[in-house]
Amino acid sequence: MGETREAPMFRSSPTRDAEFAEFMRTASLSLGRTAWLLTGNADLADELVQAALVKTYVAWPRVRSGEGLAYARRVLVNLNVDRHRRAHTTPSDRIDGIEPRHAEQSVDDRDQATRMLATLPAQQRRVIVLRYYDDLSEAEVAHHLGISVGAVKSSASRGLATLRSRFARVPEGEGQ
């Protein structure tokens, strides 16, 4: 079986570039912060934001007015999911429900938040970031990640439970 994509013709235009440059000016900091929390790695975060913005630029005429950030963030999240899956290595051990660290979770250890996020399974981490940093509703998180609202609730609940125990163990002043 095969497939052929019938790609439409596109041309960049000064209008598109100007609009998109303005969009980037307001959106790239927010996207970068989300990417940083998702990956805990500055270089990876930069790569994700760069790639997400390029894809958003290509799709720009079809991005509804006022929804550029949501669109770009969705692209970013999906790129991160794909990247994680490509980088994923099969862990050899899991004891009593404790997940091993993923390749993604070799973080800069810059601060307490990213260290604690790194202890979460990938989906819980995505849900926690989108829900509690980007302040998306459960339905919006579900839409971003392509999972059910129930899965969002479940992941958030389990992620918070894990973070609660981590908070309890981190002494005052640690992690700076």
Partner: peptide, 28 residues
């Protein structure tokens, strides 16, 4: 959790080269 995430994110500065995004987008 919100506070911790916000604090962590606050230290992030925009390092994206906007001109490079536009150039890559035009090339695509």
């Amino acid at each position: 959790v919100r506070e911790e995430l916000a604090t962590s994110a606050h230290g992030w500065t925009d390092r994206i080269d906007h001109d490079r995004v536009l150039a890559d987008g035009r090339r695509a």
